[in-house]
Design a binder for these strands. Structure first.
Lengths: 346, 346
DNA sequence: GTGAAAGCGCTAACAG
DNA sequence: CTGTTAGCGCTTTCAC
């Protein structure tokens, strides 16, 4: 990169001080409209470009935000990331993408780098229900917003901002849908129970099963950590029982694909023999021939809202109590539960 | 963010100058092993964290790299992005994600921001065959590597580094596969012909059609700009002809999904009535019930190699002539072309 | 081997 | 309304 023109150069050319140039260019009062115009014209003419590093050093603002996710290769995140980037950009922020690979150690490392880089704020999608890294962020007074997952427990009460789906509603909706289609034996393929998403979905699902008076078997609730292969393995086992479940509530679409693999491999059909519902509304599920019914947590909206809240915080608005946004999820009925075949029975 | 400890603080605590601290911490000679140890211990103890902005200001290195893509929500990119981020990170760089939304105007804007931020280098996946923005980068002596697409024309000769798939091989492989399965009427659903990927795939495909002496009809080559809906529309039209194609070479998987929609909607079956092959090996295509045959450009490898080359360039190695890496693509046979049914005929 | 001094480009706090 | 001065945290000469 070549020698660039600085505000000093412009100042010299315009016969004013660097300060004047700075103020003129940043639209702050202190210079006459006339000089301002002259300076601005000169800046364009000389191809002036501000130096973010210098500005950041003195203003302690980097206009950088970090986005912390498990892996951008996981299809849950890209849609959200797209919206986050778009929203951040529109407000003059750039996005640092950070993959943690589901490791708390890497989450920690990533947050440290982000801190050192002087980001103005961070959006975190990987929080565990009790996450020491988040705890640390709070103690440091770091500016951040949780998205998708939040933290629970006394320590976090009123100290975090988050944007999440109504995970209990997700659990209820899933079970209700399957119940109304006539299912009596429903398996719950749960995510990582150290996350609020899986905890709440599971709790609500179990409560719903109870409420409807459906068959219960504790082997029918199995923690698969949001892993497709774990779900597949679990399903193989469940399907081998003589009293096998007739429906699976999978807490994300990828686990649903795992279960789907197991079902199809065992020669059974969806939805004739087994009903399947996922969560996330990943694009893959919408393909003809897959047609996975699912519950959308509204990923774009989560990303957008989280970013807006973060921007408010970073810019000093939104002081005082924490903002907790809970989005109402949306049931997306396709064919994997058999609704189109038989409709609701009850 | 609170008051942080600086090298000055450490210097004071250790009874040495800031200079000594800087040298000790950066493992540069000029300070005795003993003081070095003392300083390092003190740095840890006092929780010293370097300030990237300050360092960047003086060293003109930001350890930031930009990654320019159309949209992270497009499933072609995440896998590559993951690898890029991982590789960059391992070398101490952070990744700025930039979506252009397929707009050259936004590409330009994004590159300007990246420039202003003083990134050390940029990886660009959105280049058009003749891209004024890239041209500008070259003239500026900017450090960048193209990935996936490159630029062509005299101006760019030997002036760009790139990592791409062998797109002509992709075109040949696709047609050859369909030819050997016995197809006589093959449609080519082309991407944006202003990109090298689509240009080369199309050229090679047409040459292969000729070589095999297959039926040719210029309406069978249709430019769909890598858009799923455009491909769907084109397919609807082609399928309505009385002499319809029996096979489609779609230059990306998403256009293949568009064609697939059209085929299935019209009551035809895949692969019985129509064979379908895509390019990209997007995860969606691998789902049971979709089973799209495709050609993998090896996205992760592209991302990895491009990042490595960029790092070499940024660090001053790899001077002299430009590096052009062309990866051999891989044919992934699933069921959408009917290989498993009938095998090769010729 | 070590420290002092200068300065990267910018903004904030003054004095004129 | 303008200009001067100082300094953000760090690295890089250059003396000692």
């Amino acid at each position: 990169m070549q020698r660039k023109t600085t505000i000093k150069d412009i100042g010299r050319a315009a016969g004013v001080s660097p300060t004047a140039v700075s103020m003129a260019l940043n639209d702050r009062r202190g210079v006459s409209p006339d000089t301002r115009r002259r300076i601005k014209a000169l800046a364009v003419e000389m191809g002036y470009r501000p130096n973010y590093a210098a500005r950041s050093l003195v203003s302690c603002k980097s206009y950088l935000i970090g986005f912390v996710i498990n892996s951008i290769a996981d299809p849950f995140y890209p849609e959200m990331a797209q919206k986050v980037e778009e929203t951040a950009n529109a407000a003059g922020y750039s996005l640092l993408l950070c993959n943690t690979q589901r490791s708390l150690g890497r989450e920690k490392a990533v947050l440290e780098v982000l801190h050192d880089r002087g980001v103005d704020g961070v959006i975190i999608a990987t929080a565990m229900a009790d996450d020491a890294n988040i705890r640390h962020l709070i103690e440091d007074g770091f500016c951040f917003v949780l998205v998708n997952r939040h933290c629970s427990g006394a320590f976090f009460e009123n100290r975090i901002d988050y944007v999440v789906a109504d995970n209990e509603a997700i659990g209820r909706m899933a079970i209700r849908h399957l119940y109304r289609l006539g299912h009596e034996r429903i398996a719950v393929i749960a995510g990582d129970l150290n996350t609020t998403t899986a905890m709440l979905r599971t709790r609500a699902a179990v409560a719903a099963l109870e409420k409807y008076g459906l068959d219960r078997d504790e082997r029918w609730v199995v923690e698969c950590h949001y892993r497709r292969d774990a779900a597949r393995t679990a399903a193989v086992e469940l399907l081998a029982c003589n009293k096998r479940p007739t429906a699976f509530f999978c807490q994300d679409d990828f686990m649903a694909f795992g279960v789907r693999d197991a079902v199809l491999e065992s020669g059974l059909q969806i939805p004739r023999d087994v009903a399947l519902i996922g969560v996330d509304d990943v694009e893959m599920g919408a393909l003809r021939g897959v047609d996975l019914s699912t519950i959308s947590p509204r990923k774009s909206e989560m990303g957008f809202t989280a970013t807006r809240i973060l921007i408010d915080k970073m810019q000093g608005r939104q002081i005082g109590k924490s903002r907790n946004v809970v989005l109402t999820p949306e049931l997306i009925v396709r064919t994997s539960c058999g609704y189109s075949l038989k409709g609701y029975r009850r």
